[in-house]
Simulated assay, not measured.
Amino acid sequence: MKIQKKYKGTVVPLVTPLTARYELDEGAVERIVHNLYNNEAMPFILGTTGESASLPAALKQSFIKKTAALKQAGTDFYVGISGNCFEESVELAKTSLDAGAAAVAATLPTYYHLSEEQMKDYFVSLAEAVNGPLIIYNIPATTHMSIPLELIEELSYHEHIVGTKDSERNDGRLERSLELWSKREDFSHFLGWAAKSAYALLNGGDGLIPSTGNVAPEIYCEMTKAVVAGDTEKAYYYQHLSDTLGNVYQSGRTLGESLRALKVLMQENGLCEAHMMSPLGALHERDEQNLIKAYYQLLQQESTAFKQPTHA
Rank of each mutant, 00 (worst) to 15 (best):
Gly47Asn: 06
Gln72Cys: 06
Asp76Ile: 00
Glu40Gln: 10
Asn38Arg: 13
Gln72Glu: 15
Lys66Val: 05
Asn39Cys: 09
Gly80Arg: 02
Phe44Met: 11
Asn38Leu: 05
Ala102Ile: 11
Ala57Val: 12
Leu97Asn: 12
Gly100Val: 05
Gly74Ser: 01
Phe44Arg: 01
Phe63Ser: 01
Gly47Thr: 08
Val90Pro: 00
Ala93Val: 10
Ala102Gln: 09
Met42Gln: 14
Gly100Ala: 13
Gly83Lys: 07
Phe77Gln: 02
Lys60Thr: 12
Thr75Val: 02
Ala41Asn: 09
Gly74Thr: 08
Thr75Arg: 14
Asp76His: 10
Asp76Met: 08
Gly50Asn: 06
Ala73Glu: 15
Phe44Asn: 02
Thr48Gln: 07
Thr75Ala: 07
Ser82Ile: 02
Gln61Glu: 15
Ala68Thr: 09
Ala53His: 12
Ser54Cys: 13
Leu92Arg: 13
Ser62Cys: 08
Leu92Thr: 15
Ser82Cys: 04
Phe44Lys: 01
Asp98Glu: 15
Lys71Gly: 04
Leu46Cys: 05
Asp98Gly: 06
Ala53Lys: 11
Asp98Ser: 15
Ile81Cys: 04
Leu97Tyr: 09
Ala102Glu: 00
Met42Ile: 00
Phe44Cys: 03
Leu70Ile: 07
Pro43Leu: 03
Glu87Arg: 09
Lys94His: 15
Pro43Val: 00
Ala101Pro: 10
Lys66Asp: 05
Gly74Asn: 10
Phe63Gly: 00
Glu91Phe: 05
Leu46Trp: 01
Asn84His: 06
Asp76Val: 01
Ser62Ile: 02
Ala53Ser: 14
His34Gln: 10
Glu51Cys: 10
Thr75Tyr: 11
Phe44Val: 03
Phe86Asp: 02
Ala101Lys: 13
Lys60Asn: 14
Asp98Ala: 15
Ile45Gly: 05
Thr67Val: 10
Asp76Phe: 06
Thr95Gln: 15
Leu46Ile: 07
Gly83Asn: 06
Asn39Gln: 11
Ser89Val: 08
Asn38Glu: 12
Leu70Asn: 07
Lys94Asn: 14
Ala57Arg: 13
Leu97Pro: 08
Thr48His: 08
Leu55His: 11
Ala58Gln: 14
Ser62Val: 06
Leu70Met: 11
Gln61Arg: 14
Leu59Pro: 01
Thr49Gln: 08
Ala41Thr: 03
Glu51Phe: 03
Ser82Glu: 03
Leu92Lys: 11
Gly74Arg: 03
Lys71Ile: 02
Asn39Leu: 04
Ile32Lys: 03
Leu97Ser: 13
Ser82Pro: 12
Phe86Trp: 04
Gln61Gly: 13
Asp98Val: 12
Val33Leu: 02
